[in-house]
């Protein structure tokens, strides 16, 4: 039955139910009280990039090929290749700066990197006090170990490790086959044959 004012009363009933329910049903109250409690972000969550190294920080996977610098849409990466005294390029970066006040977390640098060396972190607590230089992450800040990468993104890191291992094995197999073929070609002909 439809009495005047019915919609108003039904509205009041719903808010009352929400009010009472928020004391008794935990799933009604969805507040997470940061910083005492933190939401568990999912594995795929991405914030800012970082560089991966395998054994030690002075041997990163990055070869300073500058593909990520070119492909980055807001141009927030700045790379300078490391050279030795004679000017020959060593395949690693001397300067690798990412300005995280410009970075828009689009993940394109991760997709185009051919060496699986730049990956996305999920640390979001990056506030700093200084506005201008504190938000530029330099090479020491960016280098993090493969163990750290496995910790924050286990499934993705496992895939990357498997791929790198397969590539390394394929390369080793090819090298061994080439060495075997070269050894066969320069082998001493067997005794008895006419040269």
């Amino acid at each position: 039955m439809n009495y005047p004012g019915k919609g108003l009363v039904e509205g009041l009933a719903i808010t009352a139910r929400n009010f009472v329910g928020s004391y008794f049903y935990k799933d009604r109250l969805t507040t997470v009280q940061y910083p005492e409690e933190r939401v568990q972000t999912p594995e795929n969550s991405r914030t800012f990039p970082f560089l991966v190294f395998d054994e030690s920080p002075d041997k990163p996977r990055c070869t300073a090929c500058k593909i990520c610098e070119v492909e980055c849409p807001p141009k927030c990466i700045y790379i300078v290749m490391d050279r030795d005294d004679k000017g020959k390029p060593l395949q690693r970066p001397k300067v690798f700066d990412i300005d995280i006040s410009v970075c828009m977390q689009c993940q394109i640098c991760v997709e185009v990197c051919p060496f699986e060396s730049i990956k996305m972190d999920n640390d979001y607590e990056k506030s700093r006090y200084g506005r201008f230089n504190d938000l530029v992450q330099r090479l020491p800040d960016l280098l993090k170990s493969n163990a750290y990468y496995n910790k924050i993104k286990p499934a993705e890191a496992a895939e990357v490790d498997a791929k790198l291992k397969a590539e390394a094995e394929a390369k080793a197999a090819k090298k061994a086959a080439a060495a075997a073929a070269a050894a066969k070609a320069t082998a001493v002909p067997p005794a008895g044959s006419v040269t």
Partner: peptide, 10 residues
């Protein structure tokens, strides 16, 4: 239920 038939919204 909260809003569609609420007289004030109408």
């Amino acid at each position: 239920k909260l809003m569609t038939t609420n007289e004030v919204v109408l």
